Deep mutational scan, measured.
Amino acid sequence: MQIFVKTLTGKTITLEVEPSDTIENVKAKIQDKEGIPPDQQRSIFAGKQLEDGRTLSDYNIQKESTLHLVLR
């Protein structure tokens, strides 16, 4: 499925993911596309910070959902 990741600069990245993917996985995909190390990424969805060990389905993130990426 496709999800979108919006950065603070307003750029939107499209990722191909599975509901079973962990947040860690997703951060690795963002690193592949953007070169941002996962330890600098904070992902926010529906106002909640997403934890690395959880999966997209844990957070009820579905296709075409938009995550927000904040850098630390």
Rank of each mutant, 00 (worst) to 15 (best):
I61R: 01
V26D: 01
E51R: 07
I44Q: 05
D58W: 10
N25K: 14
K33M: 13
T7D: 06
T12S: 05
L15T: 00
G10Q: 03
V5K: 00
E24F: 14
H68T: 12
Q41P: 07
Q2W: 11
D32F: 11
F4W: 05
P38I: 15
H68G: 04
K11E: 09
G53H: 14
Q62E: 10
E24W: 15
P37G: 08
A28E: 09
S20M: 09
E16A: 08
S43Y: 15
T12Q: 06
K48N: 10
N25A: 13
Q31K: 10
L50W: 03
I44A: 03
L71T: 10
Q31N: 11
A28F: 11
R54G: 06
L69T: 02
T9K: 11
T66Y: 08
K33D: 07
A46Y: 15
I23K: 00
Y59G: 02
F45C: 10
K27C: 08
G53Y: 12
E34N: 09
T22W: 04
R42T: 15
G53M: 11
E16Q: 11
D32E: 14
F45D: 04
I3N: 02
Q41K: 06
I36L: 08
K48F: 12
R72P: 11
R72H: 12
N25P: 00
G10C: 07
G10T: 02
E24D: 08
F45Q: 05
Q41C: 11
E16C: 13
L69A: 01
I30Y: 03
K27F: 10
T12A: 03
T14A: 09
L50N: 01
P38T: 15
A46D: 13
Q49G: 06
T12I: 14
V70E: 10
Q40D: 10
K29R: 10
T22F: 05
Y59R: 00
R72W: 13
T66S: 04
I3D: 01
I61H: 01
A46L: 12
D58E: 10
G53L: 08
D32W: 09
G35L: 05
R42F: 15
T7K: 02
D21K: 00
A28G: 08
Q49Y: 15
M1D: 03
E34R: 04
K29H: 04
L71V: 12
E18I: 11
L8F: 11
D21E: 09
K11M: 09
T55K: 10
K29N: 02
G10L: 01
L50A: 01
T7C: 10
D52M: 05
I23H: 01
T66V: 13
V70I: 11
R42D: 13
S43T: 15
N60R: 05
F45S: 07
S65Y: 06
L67I: 14
H68L: 15
L8D: 13
I23L: 08
K29F: 04
K63G: 12
D21R: 01
I61E: 02
T12H: 06
I3H: 01
D21M: 10
S43K: 06
G35N: 07
T14V: 13
R54E: 03
L67E: 01
H68I: 15
K6C: 15
K33S: 11
T7A: 04
V26W: 01
I23Y: 03
N60E: 08
N25W: 09
Q2S: 10
E34V: 14
S57R: 12
L56E: 01
G35D: 04
N25G: 08
N60T: 03
L15K: 00
T9F: 13
K11N: 09
I30N: 01
T22C: 02
F4S: 04
K48S: 09
L71M: 12
K27H: 09
I13H: 04
E24G: 12
D39F: 09
I23P: 01
F4Y: 13
D52A: 06
V5D: 03
I3K: 01
G10E: 03
L50I: 04
Q49C: 15
S65P: 03
I13D: 00
Q62R: 11
D32N: 11
L56T: 01
P37S: 10
T12W: 08
G35M: 05
N25F: 11
T9R: 10
Q49P: 12
T7E: 04
F4H: 09
K63P: 15
F4E: 03
V17N: 00
I36C: 07
K48D: 07
I13Q: 01
L15A: 01
I61C: 03
D52N: 09
D39V: 09
L67R: 00
